[in-house]
Design a protein around this nucleic acid. Structure first.
Lengths: 231, 231
DNA sequence: GAAACCAAATCGTCATACTTTTAATCCCGC
DNA sequence: GCGGGATTAAAAGTATGACGATTTGGTTTC
C-alpha cells in the first residue's frame, strides 16, 4: 500500500512536513540539499519530488527550486495527503472537511446499497451490526473500531459506485483517527448502535429511503460530536 | 496545470491507454521497452512510471516489470485519471459514477454555500444566473457551458469546504464532457435554467434548504438525462 | 535611466555502471 | 518421476558524471 524504496523514505519525511504546514506555502527546497540531508542520489530525490508534484504539494522550477504549493492546489482526495494531514497539526480542519464529505456521501451510498447490495453483502452487514452491538456492550474499543470500519466499508462498497467505494479507506482513516485521538466517548453511544442496526435492516429490506435516513443520522451525530470536541 | 517535460509526454500516452482499458489489468510493460518506444532515457521513464504508480494505475516490481493494476485500486478521484477515463472507452461508466457523486455532493455544497458564501460570491452567482438565462435563450452553447461551469464552481467554492471546492475541476470536466459528446439538448432546458436562478436566490437569501433542494433537482435532472442518452 | 546583454544557479535529461531483488530453471538426491 | 534447494538471469533500483535548457538577476552600455 505504501510507496517503497528510498523515495518512500523521502516521502514519509517531506509529505507530513508539508501537509502539517511545517513547510509553509512558498517554502523552497533545493534538490541538492535534499540529496545531502537524506544521503541519497539525485535519482531518488527526483522521483520523490515527482510524486509530490503529482499530488500538487510542490512544484519544481528551474533556477528557483522546489516550492511548496498553496493548500488550495493540493490533491486533497489523495489518501496519502489525507493521512498526512490527519497525523499533523492540520488534523482538526481535516476532520471537519471529511465530516462534511461523509455527510454528503454516506447517506447517498446507503440508499444505493439498499438497491444494489449483493446477498452476501447484506448478510455481512447484518452480522456486523450484531458484532457492533456486542463489542460496544463489552466496551472493547479496538474490536468495535474494526467492526465499525468494516460496516461503513461494506455500505460504500455495496453502493456499486467506484468513487464511493474508493472512500472506504478515507472513512476508515477518519474512524481510526477519532478513536486514536480520543475524540470518542469511552463507551459507544447505544443510540448510534441502534442506527447501525437500522441501516443494516433497511439495506437487507431494500428500503433505500430508510437506509439513507438512518445513515444520515449516524454521520450527523458523529459530526456534531466532533464539533463539540474540537471547539 | 499539466505535468511538464518529457515525463509528461509519456503520461499523456500511457495514462489514457490504461484508463481507457486499452492496456488491460495485468498487462506488463518493461522500462527498457518504453525507453525505446518513446526515445527517452531511463530517468524520464522512471519518473513517469513513478507518477502512474502514485495514482495506483501501475505497480513496478523487480524481475517482473510494470504491471497495470486492477481498476479497483486506481485513485479514481485524481483529476487526471478522471479526464483520461472521460476521454476514452470508459466514458459512460465514468459519467455515471460522477453523476452519483454530484448528486451527493452538490446539494450539500449548495446548503453550505447558503450559509457561508461571501457577499462577492453571492453577487457573482446572481450575475451568472442572469448570464445563463441570456446565453441559453441565444442558444450560445459555448458561452452557456462556461457560465454553467463557473456557476457550479462558485457554489462548490462558497461551501468553504476544501474537499468540495476541489471537485470544481471534476464537475467542470463533466459539464464539458457532456457538451462535447453531444449528450445535451441543443437548447438548454428552460426549467433547468430556472432552477439555477433559484439556487442563486436561495444562496443570496441564506436559505440553505431551498438551495439544497433546487440544486438536487438540477443534478437529478442531469443524471436522468444522462441515463436516457446512455441506455 | 532604460534596454540589452551576460552570467550564474538550478532543474532537466542522458548515458552508463553497479546493486538488489526475485522469478524461473537446473540439478541433485530420493 | 518428484520435491527441494542452489544457481542463474532478468528486471527494476540506485549512484554518478556530464551536459543542456531555462530562468533570474545583476551589469554593462548607450
Amino acid at each position: 500500500m505504501e510507496i517503497q524504496g528510498l523515495p518512500g523514505r523521502l516521502l514519509a519525511e517531506l509529505g507530513p512536513a508539508i501537509a502539517s504546514g511545517e513547510l509553509a506555502e512558498g517554502a523552497v527546497l533545493r534538490a541538492e540539499e535534499l540529496e545531502e540531508r537524506f544521503g541519497v542520489s539525485r535519482t531518488v530525490v527526483r522521483e520523490a519530488v515527482r510524486i509530490l508534484e503529482g499530488m500538487h504539494l510542490v512544484a519544481s522550477r528551474r533556477r528557483v527550486g522546489i516550492t511548496v504549493q498553496p493548500k488550495a492546489d493540493w490533491d486533497v482526495f489523495d489518501p496519502l495527503v489525507i493521512r498526512w494531514r490527519l497525523a499533523g497539526a492540520d488534523r482538526p480542519a481535516q476532520l471537519r472537511s471529511l465530516g462534511s464529505l461523509r455527510l454528503a456521501v454516506e447517506p447517498a451510498a446507503a440508499a444505493l446499497a439498499a438497491r444494489h447490495a449483493t446477498d452476501d453483502e447484506r448478510r455481512r452487514l447484518s452480522a456486523l451490526a450484531v458484532e457492533l452491538t456486542m463489542t460496544a456492550r463489552a466496551a472493547d474499543l479496538p474490536a468495535f473500531l474494526q467492526h465499525d470500519i468494516d460496516f461503513h466499508a461494506i455500505v460504500l462498497q455495496a453502493s456499486r459506485n467506484e468513487m464511493f467505494a474508493h472512500l472506504r479507506e478515507t472513512v476508515g482513516a477518519v474512524l481510526t483517527g477519532r478513536t486514536e485521538y480520543h475524540l470518542m466517548p469511552h463507551q459507544p453511544e447505544p443510540y448510534a448502535i441502534r442506527l447501525h442496526r437500522e441501516v443494516a435492516e433497511a439495506v437487507c429490506a431494500g428500503d433505500a429511503e430508510q437506509a439513507e435516513r438512518a445513515m444520515r443520522t449516524i454521520v450527523e451525530g458523529a459530526l456534531a460530536e466532533l464539533n463539540e470536541q474540537l471547539d
